[in-house]
Design a protein around this nucleic acid. Structure first.
Lengths: 208, 208, 208, 208
DNA sequence: GATGAATGAGAATTCATTCAT
DNA sequence: AATGAATGAATTCTCATTCAT
C-alpha cells in the first residue's frame, strides 16, 4: 500500500520504503509506541538510514503528517472549492453532495494518514496549529460565506454559519472517526449509510 | 482535579495520587508517551511505589480506562436507562433530550478519562472489546428497540435503527471529539450550540 | 586511586565507583574519547546507573571538573592564603617557597583531575569561565598586592605585578604540564629539579 | 586561513580544503569531538571524499599533526640551528634572543597546528614518540652541548644542562600555552611581556 | 577523482521493572 | 507499605566507513 500522495520529493527508493513503513507502524501503534528499529526492519533498511534524511524520529512523523494536512486535509475541503464557490449550485443539496462525493474518496484513499493525523494531533501543538491555519484560515471563511448564501435563499436554517459548518463536519467526522479510526475492521460504511447521512444533514438543516 | 469516580477501591492516599497523576499525564502525552517516573514525580511518590499495586504500567492504564468504560461510558448511555426504557417518553424529542441532558454532564465531568479512552482504544484491543461488550451488547439492543418504537409511531424516519443510532452518536461524538479532544482550549460549547445540535438531529431524523 | 577530594556529597558506593572510573578514563582518553559504556564497565555497574545521578555524560564531566576548579585549583593558590597574606614573610623567597611547597603537593595529589581540567578547558567555555572567576577574581588581586609589597621593599624587579605572577605561574605551569600531562611517564620531577626551579624564579625576579 | 605549510604534497584543491577544514575543527573540538561529516560540510565536499585520500579519520589527523611535528616543532628549535651552533654567539643572551625571536614567529604562524598537537599528544602515543624523536634526539643533544659551552664560560649557572633546557622551555611553553591554548582570546602577549620573559630567564640562569 | 546513499557498530539516553532496606 | 538505587533491555541517534554510480 503505497502512499504516493505524500512527501515524495526526490526520495530514494529506500527512503520511500521508510516512509511507507513508518506510516503503517505509526498508524498501528501511534508515534510514541512505534520504534525506529521496527520501522527500519519493516522497511528493510538499516536503522541509521532513517536518520540520514530525517534528523529525528519526530521529523519523520512531521514529514508524513505535516504535508498531509496541507495536501490531504485541505483538499478534502478546499479542492475544487473554486468550482464549488464559483459553480452556481442550484441548491444546498447539490452543494452538500459535491462536498461529500469526491471528498470522501480522498478520505478513503488516505485513511491511514488521516488516522495518524487524528491520533497525533492531540500530542503535537505544531500539528494543531497547522491544521488551524489550513482549515481555519483558508477554508472556514469561504465555506461560511457560501453557507450564508444558502441561508439568504432560505434553503437552510438561519443559525450561525459556523455552527452549520460544525454540524456538517461533526457528522462527517463522526462518520469518519467511527468507521476508520475506532472500528476500522467493521467497515459498515455502505453506500446507503452515506446516503442516509446526507439526507440526515439535509433535513437537519432545513429551515422548517 | 480528582477523579473519584474511578478505581478507588481501597486505594491508599498515595495510590490515589498515582492514579490522578497518571490520568493527567496519560491524557497529555498518551500512554506510550508517558513515563512511569514522570507519573511518580507528579504524584510525589517513589518510582517503585507505582509497581506495588500495579504490576505493570499497562495495568495502571487498564485500571484507569477499563473501569471507566463500564463506569462512565456505559452510564452515559445506560444510566437511568431503565427509566428511559420504562418511562413513557411522550415523544422522540423528550427521549433525545433525556439522553443528551444528563449524559453530557457525565461527559463533561469525565472529560479527561474519555480523552484517554478515545486516544488509547485504537492501540489496545482489550479496550476495544470491552467497549464493544459494554456498549454493543448491553446498550445497543435496547436503544435500537426504543428507536423502533418511535419509528412505528411515525416520529422518525424509517431507516435501519442501527443507522439512526449511529447518526445520533456520530453527531454526539463529533461534538465531543472536536470540543474535548481535538480543540479543548476552544471551549465554544455554548449552550445554544448544544440546543442547535439537538434541533439538527431532531429535524434530521424527522420522517418527512 | 580514590579521588575523595571531589564531589562526594552523599554518593552511593556505586556512584563513587562511577566517578572514579570516569576520572581515570577521562584522563586517559579525553571527554569525547571516553564512552559511558566503558566507564560503566570499569566501574562495574550497569550503564544506566550512570544516568540516574548524572542526566548526561557532560554533567558527569562537570561534576568532576567543576568542583575541582574551585576545590583544587583555587586552594592551590588561595589555600592558607590568609596565612600567606597575614604572615609576615621575612622575604620573597619565603613567600615563594611557601607557595610552592605545600601547593605542589596538592598538584601531585590531584594530578589526574588537573590533567582532565587542562585537557577539557579548551573545549568547554563554562570551565574556562569558572576558572577565570575562581582564579581571576579571588586570587589574582591578592597575589598582585603581595607582589607589590615585595617590589616596594626592593626585593623583586619592578615590572607589572601581573607579569610577575604570569612568570611565576608560567614556570609552575610549564613544570606541571610537561611533567604531568605531556610526559607523565618520565617522572623526572626530582627534588633538586624543584629546588632549581625555585632558584631560577628567585633569581629571574631579582632586581639587579 | 590556509595552512599551506603542512602536507601540501600534490593535494587537489578539494583535498586542501579538507585539510583546512579539519584543522579548524580539530582545533575547536579536538580529534574525538570532531566528526568527519562536519569536516566534509565545512570543506564543501562529499562525505566520502575525505576517505579517498585518507583511509581513516585518524590518518587525516596524523597527516596534519605528524608532519607538523617535524616541519614546525622541529624548526622552532632546530631551524637555523646549524647557524646557532656554528655561529659564535658572543654570549648567552644573544643565543637566547636568537632562539626566541624568529621561533616565536613560527609559533604564532602555526598557532592552530600547535594547539591541535598539544591537545592530541596526550592521547596518541605515536605523536608522543615522534615528538620525542624529533625533539629529543635531533635537538636536545646539540642544545645541551651548547648550554655546556656557556656554562664553561661562566655565563650561566652550573646545573644539569637538561634542567636548563627545561627551565627555558617551561617558560616558553607556559607563555605559549597560556596565551595560545588556554586563553587565546586574551591576547595580552605584548612585546614587553616577551622582553620581560627573556630578562627573567636570563637573570634566572645567571651564575651568581 | 568525486559523490552521497547506505551501512552497522556503537554511542548516549530512557524506562519499566526489581529488590534490598 | 514505601522507598529509591540499580538494572538491562530497548530506544533514539551518531558516525566512520564503504561502494555503486
Amino acid at each position: 500500500m503505497e502512499n504516493k500522495e505524500v512527501g515524495q520529493e526526490q526520495l530514494t527508493e529506500k527512503q520511500q520504503r521508510i516512509v511507507d513503513a513508518a506510516i503503517e507502524i505509526f498508524a498501528a501503534k501511534g508515534y510514541s509506541g512505534a520504534s525506529t528499529s521496527e520501522i527500519a526492519k519493516k522497511a528493510g533498511v538499516a536503522e541509521g538510514t532513517i536518520f540520514r534524511r530525517y534528523k529525528t524520529k519526530k521529523e519523520l512523523l512531521m514529514s508524513i503528517v505535516g504535508p498531509m494536512i496541507s495536501k490531504v486535509i485541505a483538499p478534502i475541503i478546499v479542492k475544487d472549492f473554486d468550482k464549488v464557490i464559483t459553480a452556481d449550485y442550484k441548491d444546498f443539496e447539490s452543494f452538500l453532495r459535491a462536498i461529500f462525493s469526491n471528498r470522501l474518496k480522498l478520505v478513503e484513499k488516505n485513511q491511514i494518514l488521516i488516522k495518524i493525523a487524528i491520533q497525533e494531533i492531540p500530542f503535537h501543538p505544531e500539528l494543531k496549529e497547522k491544521l488551524f491555519e489550513v482549515v481555519g484560515k483558508e477554508v472556514f471563511k469561504s465555506i461560511c460565506q457560501r453557507i450564508e448564501d444558502f441561508q439568504l435563499k432560505g434553503e437552510i436554517v438561519k443559525i450561525h454559519p459556523k455552527l452549520v459548518v460544525q454540524l456538517i463536519f461533526s457528522s462527517l467526522f463522526g462518520y469518519v472517526a467511527s468507521n476508520f479510526i475506532l472500528f476500522p475492521e467493521r467497515s459498515v460504511h455502505q453506500d446507503n449509510e452515506l446516503e442516509h447521512t446526507i439526507q440526515f444533514i439535509l433535513k437537519g438543516l432545513r429551515q422548517y
